Simulated assay, not measured.
Amino acid sequence: MTDRLPHEKGFHISWDQIHRDSRALAWRLDGNGPDNGAWRAVVAITRGGMAPAMIVARELDVRTVDTISVVSYHSGGGAADQRREAKVLKSPDPEIMGDGTGVLVIDDLVDSGKTLELVRELYPNAHFATVYAKPEGEPQVDDFITGVSQDTWIFFPWDMAMQYVKPYRGTD
Rank of each mutant, 00 (worst) to 15 (best):
G37D: 13
E85L: 12
E136D: 14
V88F: 13
G31H: 08
G31R: 05
Q140T: 15
N125P: 01
R4I: 14
D16L: 15
A38M: 06
D35C: 06
D111S: 13
D35Q: 04
H127Q: 06
I13M: 05
D111T: 05
T67E: 02
G31N: 11
D66F: 02
R120A: 05
R58W: 02
Y164N: 04
A161P: 01
P135E: 05
D61V: 02
R58Y: 07
Q17D: 13
L109R: 05
A53T: 04
P52H: 02
D159G: 02
P157T: 09
F156R: 02
D3M: 04
L25N: 01
Y168M: 15
Y73A: 10
K87P: 06
T152L: 01
I45C: 05
T115S: 15
T146M: 05
D3R: 10
D3V: 06
L60T: 12
R83S: 12
V131W: 00
F155A: 14
N125A: 11
Y123E: 02
D142P: 02
W27V: 11
D16T: 13
D99M: 04
K87A: 15
V56P: 13
K9Q: 10
W158H: 10
K134P: 07
W153D: 00
H12L: 09
R169W: 08
G102C: 10
E136N: 12
G10K: 15
A161G: 01
V71N: 06
I68F: 01
G31I: 12
Q163A: 03
T152Q: 11
A126W: 14
A57Y: 02
I18F: 00
V62G: 12
L122A: 10
T2E: 03
E95H: 08
V131Q: 07
T146A: 08
P6S: 00
V43R: 00
D81I: 09
T2Q: 07
A38C: 07
V43F: 08
D30Q: 13
G76R: 15
G10I: 15
E121T: 14
L60D: 09
G98V: 03
S75D: 15
V131D: 03
G137H: 00
Q17L: 15
W39H: 05
K9W: 14
G10R: 14
L60H: 10
L116W: 05
S75I: 08
Q17F: 00
G49Q: 13
T64K: 12
E136L: 13
N32T: 04
S112G: 15
T67D: 09
D151C: 00
W27E: 15
Q17A: 13
G102R: 07
R58T: 13
D107Q: 04
I106H: 11
S22P: 06
R63G: 09
V88L: 05
A53E: 07
K114M: 05
M1Y: 09
Y168A: 09
L104Q: 08
P124C: 04
I68S: 04
N32L: 09
E117Q: 12
P52Q: 08
P124F: 15
I13K: 01
H19P: 00
D151T: 09
W15S: 11
P124N: 11
G147Q: 12
N36L: 03
N125Q: 14
D30H: 10
L60S: 12
G137W: 01
E95P: 00
